[in-house]
Amino acid sequence: MIGPLSLLIAMIAVAAVLCLLLIFRPAITVSRGGKMLAFVSLFVFPVLCLTMGASEHMEYSKSTAFCLKCHVMEDYGKSLHIDDASFLPAAHYQNNRVPRGQACYTCHTDYTMFGTMSAKLRGLKHVYVQTLGKIPDKLALYTPYNNRECLHCHGGARSFEEGAIHNLEPDRIAKIKSNELSCLSSGCHESVHNIAGLKEAKFWEEVKSNGEGN
């Protein structure tokens, strides 16, 4: 099965060959067929290649591997393997509650109309800071984590709606849904990446799967 990346590479190769043909034999455009060839070589194929290339880069930027390529993210990547179910990112990652290949993006993108676009713009800023700027000593979210990102998956789930702790007070669920009471509040799901405690943590060794039950 040819993947999108292989198809894109093939298209770039074909476009390059056609460009070379026009560079060395521009006179072929005298004929009608030559004119059509020039249009395809110098307009259609380049536009297609650019569009597909942008799409490929966008998809790759969603991957966990992409996020962890920056040195500053190393500890956050390690925190996904903490052997403690109370740590949210680790529990989600290790139990496939989020796709492992897009673990970071799944939680750290806003599920609003321009959610993916704003996540991308933030990502561009991060790449700029990583490459040319000064990385801050302590990383923090731009805004407090919104319950909406949790409820995107957990909202309506029986474990959430009928959970004993969630229904301890009559209006607790309503406060959670309205973001008045954060899921990450003290005493609730407060253990997140826990970068400071990584030295003492135990780690789970990931079992690589080929996605086909093996």
Binding site: A16, C19, L22, P26, L42
Partner: peptide
């Protein structure tokens, strides 16, 4: 056409 071809090829 040559110039356009060269620019596209570099891109």
């Amino acid at each position: 056409l040559r110039r356009a071809g060269v620019l596209v090829l570099i891109g």
